[in-house]
């Protein structure tokens, strides 16, 4: 069961890489795809860690902008 879910996740991420890259006008050559995908997985793991903490709705994003 777990193996099936992992396989589904893998397929979904592969599909996402192809679709998102196409949407952005990027061509990812087949030889690059495993590394792109591996980097994206690391990014998503980090993003998931960030998402685990509960933040108030009122928290403003922090990039610096001077009007």
């Amino acid at each position: 069961m777990q193996a099936d879910e992992n396989a589904e996740d893998n397929t979904a991420l592969d599909t996402y890489v192809v679709a998102a890259a196409r949407t952005l006008g990027l061509s990812v050559e087949p030889a690059w795809k495993p590394a792109v995908r591996a980097n994206l997985e690391v990014n998503l793991r980090h993003a998931a860690a960030v998402g685990e903490i509960e933040l108030p709705d009122e928290v403003e994003p922090a990039p610096v902008f001077g009007a």
Binding site: Y16, V36, L40, A47, V50, I53, V59, P61, A62, P63
Partner: peptide, 21 residues
């Protein structure tokens, strides 16, 4: 860089909110 470009925007905004906190 390609992997970074593919990141969903909501996850990036979330990281910037965490930064403030």
């Amino acid at each position: 860089l390609i992997a970074g470009a593919l990141l969903p925007a909501a996850l990036v905004v979330r990281a910037h909110k965490f930064r403030r906190w």
